[in-house]
Design a protein around this nucleic acid. Structure first.
Length: 169
DNA sequence: GGTGCGATTGCA
DNA sequence: GCAATCGCACCA
């Protein structure tokens, strides 16, 4: 599964001033296919979710609640809407972690100008990182989608737990 | 052309 | 517990 393989990869972002921010991905959620009721794509192609219907390898960035951006990695084939929401990553400053999709995009200065951008640079890209061992991967149901019925309970959320102990949240 | 709400966060 | 804040999906 692509979502699980994104854990540990390094999210990289070049700012307008040339500085580069990096941080390992620590938490993701998968949204898979038109039938996934938790996905923005389940009602079909719209202006907002259009990038999800493109071929994988690009970003899907949208604004939620009028104040927070969320970053997704589009993973499906063309016309098959699938994406992985980046919910948490190491903070670029290396000190703390950015936990929560809105915090990740804020820490990396990601907004809708990157919607649909290819994930192979120049402003946003992914690098290989140390693979996260299975012992440190936790699977849980997704967050914030209680309206999705049975789909809300699918264990499509992947979290890196450094010690290999205790599920997050 | 008008209205309601969300893949959230932060503060009371 | 609840307000903040706005693009856009949906209905008329």
């Amino acid at each position: 599964m692509v979502a699980r393989d994104l854990l540990g990869r390094v999210l990289c972002r070049r700012l307008p001033d040339g500085d580069v921010l990096r941080g390992r991905i620590l938490e993701v959620e998968a949204y898979d296919g038109p039938g996934d009721r938790a996905s923005h794509a389940h009602r079909g192609l719209t202006k907002r979710n259009a990038p999800m219907f493109e071929a994988g390898g690009i970003a899907y960035v949208y604004l939620v609640y009028g104040m927070h951006h969320c970053l997704n990695v589009v993973t499906g084939a063309r016309d098959y809407p699938a994406a992985v929401l980046i919910r948490a990553a190491e903070s670029p400053d290396g000190a703390s972690a950015a936990a929560g999709p809105g915090r990740v995009t804020r820490a990396f200065r990601i907004d809708r100008s990157l919607d649909g951008a290819p994930l192979i640079g120049p402003d946003l890209w992914l690098e290989e990182g140390k693979r996260v061992p299975e012992a440190e991967v936790r699977r849980t149901p997704r967050v914030g989608v209680p309206y999705a019925g049975a789909w809300a309970r699918k264990p499509y959320r992947f979290v890196v737990v450094p010690g290999g102990e205790r599920p997050g949240r």
